Computed example of a mutant assay.
Amino acid sequence: MFAENQALWWQPQTLLNEQSCKILLGPLQIFLQRKAGEWRLATELLTQAEHQHAESQLLTQWPQHRQASRFVFENEPVQFCLKPLLADRPVVVRTHQPVYVPPGEQVTFYISSPVSIRIELQQPTLLLKEVQTLRLSDTWFGPNTQVGELCYADKTQARQSKEELPKRVHRAVTPVSVKNNSSQMMSIEKLSLPVPYLSLYGLIDGSLWTDQVILDHQDDAEMSKLQISKKMPAGSDGAERLAKPRLYMEKHGLFRAFSDLFSHSASRSGS
């Protein structure tokens, strides 16, 4: 990267006149060029499995056959900035295998979701384009077609250890603490991650994290009590807030978190 600290790819960067660059943020490929009186921009999504890290390089010329959007100025800015932000809808993540939380237990899962990138010019700030780093399919989350909301769909390993998290530059990690304060076993098959209500943070190692989500389930409750904590996980010193929440909720809101609406495994096995 052209920034002083290459891990912090979200910092403003400078292109000289007639310079071009290519930047990879996971599967998202970004081409930028600064010319006298204009900037050029092109983006492309590559196969997700092939790219998980941030890479950049200066190009000797604009790639042939690469179609670009042109932004024209009397005096063009000299800097650009790639700003990550969380999705504009909740992300419903399906676990790869059934997960059960016994009565009275509290467990923290580390669940990631893909970010979008705002491609901006600096001084003054000008948004050129906002693009997703991964295209997620749409899904409806709720007990029926009349109650619920449109979300994005994704999958999760529901890891319980930070050390097991793969380094993926285009995904932000959300610590989700689930408290089963009911008297029965809780089954988790899908979880709705309320990312529009969370802030996004960048750590000095280049990883992205969100606020912690705490979900508290009681007996005979269809909705979970949701709390958003500003406390970062241990070992996450030096966090910089990169984006505010897109939406705001009450301090202790109710949240329909699980696909089974907190139905317990015992009740399902008897049906």
Results as ranks from 00 to 15, higher is better:
23 I>E: 09
238 G>V: 06
49 A>E: 14
58 L>V: 15
254 L>A: 14
36 A>W: 02
40 R>Y: 07
182 S>C: 15
35 K>I: 06
90 P>G: 12
164 E>T: 15
201 Y>E: 10
48 Q>C: 02
228 I>D: 12
18 E>K: 09
41 L>Y: 02
55 E>C: 08
57 Q>R: 13
67 Q>F: 00
125 T>C: 03
174 T>M: 13
114 P>L: 10
198 L>D: 07
122 Q>W: 02
245 P>V: 14
56 S>M: 10
267 S>R: 06
207 S>P: 09
130 E>Y: 02
48 Q>T: 02
13 Q>H: 05
151 C>Y: 03
268 R>H: 10
87 A>T: 11
243 A>T: 08
73 F>P: 08
259 S>I: 00
230 K>S: 15
247 L>R: 12
65 H>G: 01
244 K>T: 11
187 S>G: 14
156 T>G: 14
34 R>F: 04
142 G>H: 01
224 S>Y: 07
234 A>T: 09
33 Q>W: 01
125 T>F: 00
160 Q>W: 01
187 S>I: 13
87 A>Y: 02
163 E>R: 13
217 H>A: 14
92 V>S: 10
233 P>Y: 04
173 V>I: 15
250 E>D: 14
201 Y>P: 01
7 A>M: 12
100 Y>H: 05
47 T>L: 07
127 L>W: 02
16 L>K: 13
180 N>S: 13
144 N>A: 07
155 K>H: 01
208 L>S: 11
93 V>K: 05
172 A>C: 12
164 E>C: 13
105 E>F: 05
171 R>F: 06
118 R>D: 15
160 Q>G: 07
112 S>T: 12
171 R>E: 13
210 T>V: 13
47 T>W: 03
203 L>R: 10
95 T>S: 14
32 L>M: 06
174 T>N: 10
217 H>C: 10
3 A>M: 11
84 P>F: 03
4 E>I: 13
70 R>Y: 00
